[in-house]
């Protein structure tokens, strides 16, 4: 186990990811200040999802982990998404 080579992520990568996250934060603040009605919520949530993807991939090392880890996380997120969709199908068609 200890002989296994681990991927060491360079500091540079983290700085780039942080900059991307900060830019996305400012974009989400900017777009919610314009009145886009229903699209505001969608836009903010899409940007939050992109930020989450970056955090999961780089900060949480999923990019460098074995593939089954990604499958596990992806599966749980898919289940959560399904619960949201089913809940809203219920409320929307009441």
């Amino acid at each position: 186990m200890s002989n296994e080579k681990h991927h060491i992520v360079p500091y540079r990568t983290y700085i780039f990811v942080l900059l991307a996250l900060i830019v996305l934060t400012f974009i989400s603040i900017a777009i919610t200040h314009i009145e886009l009605a229903d699209y505001t919520v969608a836009g903010a949530l899409i940007l939050a999802s992109v930020k989450t993807f970056l955090v999961l991939t780089f900060f949480m090392h999923l990019k460098f982990d074995k593939p089954y880890m990604r499958i596990m996380v992806g599966f749980v997120l898919a289940v959560f998404l399904a619960v949201i969709i089913i809940t809203f199908l219920d409320y929307y068609y009441r």
């Binding site: 992520v9 983290y14 990811v17 780089f58 900060f59 090392h61």
Partner: peptide
């Protein structure tokens, strides 16, 4: 970012 860097 800092805590991720700590691992590196």
């Amino acid at each position: 970012m800092t805590v991720a860097m700590a691992t590196s």
